[in-house]
Design a protein around this nucleic acid. Structure first.
Length: 171
DNA sequence: TAAGTGATCTCT
DNA sequence: GAGATCACTTAA
């Protein structure tokens, strides 16, 4: 079953947690289980791009949930995010790892994701969407850690355990 | 451990 | 327009 838009229209931490074990589906037929995500929640979260205000780049995070936010980092790597929570509240979940693929930039490279997907909805018409295929990850197999590469946000935000991963998920 | 790479944002 | 910054990967 394809995840409906209202799956994403909930608090970001809940969406991030629930996305583990769901599948990212591609119009070429591939479907890979999500094993690692990070939450970026709201204008007060200094690690969230939208904390710097509403700009052309972050505009999509202020929009409706269930849309992709794709951007280039370090001039080389594409990052894949999904917008969460209600409209006008900037938040998103970064997809960091899929079954057999660890690393957010490896994932976008493998799926040939780039800015063409930015602002599009998670729907077959866009080429990528999410499905629940009945997999349930037991809570004891979900590990929480601080987010990666966000030291610039200061200790209060950099240490929040907003990275979720499935134990042994990348194997 | 450091370099590579370019869009974006914040000044002039 | 110029300069700094950056949610990463790879090869040493």
């Amino acid at each position: 079953m394809m995840l409906p838009m209202d799956f994403f229209e909930r608090p970001t931490l809940i969406v991030a947690h629930d996305m583990l074990g769901k599948f990212l589906c591609c119009s070429d037929g591939r479907a890979l289980m999500i094993t690692e995500v990070e939450a970026y929640d709201g204008p007060q979260d200094l690690a969230c791009h939208a904390a710097r205000g509403r700009t052309p780049r972050t505009e999509v995070m202020f929009g409706a949930a269930g849309h992709f936010y794709v951007y280039l980092i370090y001039g080389i790597h594409w990052m894949l995010n999904v917008v969460t929570d209600r409209k006008d509240y900037p938040a998103a979940v970064l997809i960091r790892g899929l079954e057999g693929i660890s690393g957010p930039a490896r994932l976008t490279k493998a799926l040939k994701i780039d800015k063409k997907l930015n602002t599009l909805p998670a729907h077959p018409a866009s080429g990528f969407w999410f499905e629940d295929r009945g997999t349930r990850i037991p809570s004891r197999e979900i590990i929480k850690t601080p987010r990666i590469g966000v030291d610039y946000a200061g200790p209060e935000w950099a240490t929040k355990p907003w990275r979720f991963l499935v134990k042994n998920g990348s194997s």
